[in-house]
């Protein structure tokens, strides 16, 4: 696109999980299908994209983080990127909050905010796809979307157009319980304890007997799915990203 001298409306920042993790790749494709469905011109960096440096920063490796950040900013600025959407709250948080004072100033939104915007504008409806009407869905707030950036309602707007029954866990929104993956925990074994955090969380979700546990973060996705597997509930409960729900409801 850049070669043709065009600039996209939005850059879709896919993220490492969205690029490499097989399960998260499905979320990536769902986001793309929605972007195409509503007719937004978008681009991805493809092989020019790198880790934002988030896991390094949370783990205390500021050098590595800034190396990644400064390199990424050079690429993004070279393409004259103005607006970024990402399907990962960790990429979202880092790009939005930590890149500006290193020279990377973009309008960064999480895909939940894009969905909410499309819903509000009437561009995204529910037509011709799977019906989630009346289905019990519970939503797990990602820490880096919710508490870290105060985004609680945007992901929930999806359940409204689905006409699904949103059942909230006791620990939701500001009191949401982490899935256990943040702060670089995703890449290490948990410290000694009496339970894994994702088990604690999925236990809470399963008490509500939902048919779907909705997520909005690829790391939460992994942790929640592992938890559901742990309780051998894969047959009854699906773990789906909000983008996948919206895409499926439109048969995309």
């Amino acid at each position: 696109m850049a070669a043709e001298g065009q600039e996209p409306e939005v850059l879709f920042w896919v993220g490492c999980a969205g690029s490499f993790d097989e399960r998260a790749q499905k979320i990536t494709r769902a986001v793309c299908s929605i972007l195409q469905h509503v007719g937004i011109s978008y681009a991805v960096l493809g092989t020019e994209e790198s880790c934002t440096g988030d896991p390094a920063k949370r783990a205390g490796n500021e050098f590595l983080f800034q190396m990644m950040a400064i390199t990424n900013i050079e690429v993004l600025n070279a393409y004259n990127i103005k607006k970024i959407v990402t399907a990962c709250p960790h990429c979202f948080n880092t790009l939005k909050n930590e890149y500006p004072n290193l020279g990377g100033n973009y309008d960064v939104i999480h895909h939940s905010q894009l969905l909410q915007q499309l819903i509000d504008e009437g561009k995204l409806k529910v037509t011709g796809g799977e019906s989630f009407k009346g289905k019990k869905i519970t939503f797990h707030d990602p820490c880096y979307l919710g508490r870290a950036n105060g985004v609680y309602e945007a992901p929930r707007s999806v359940f409204e157009i689905l006409d699904a029954e949103l059942v909230e866990m006791k620990r939701c929104k500001t009191n949401g319980l982490c899935c256990g993956a943040g702060g670089a925990q995703m890449f290490k074994e948990p410290e000694k304890g009496n339970k894994d955090i994702n088990i604690e969380r999925v236990e809470e979700a399963l008490e509500l007997k939902p048919s779907v546990i909705a997520a909005a973060c690829p790391f939460c996705m992994t942790m929640l799915r592992d938890g559901v597997k742990h309780f051998e509930k894969e047959a009854e409960v699906e773990v789906l990203d909000i983008a996948e729900l919206a895409a499926r409801a439109n048969d995309l």
């Binding site: 949370r58 820490c143 982490c178 702060g183």
Partner: peptide, 10 residues
């Protein structure tokens, strides 16, 4: 052991 989830600061 910290997940940097900000539950404590909240």
């Amino acid at each position: 052991a910290c997940t940097t989830c900000n539950a404590c600061t909240q």
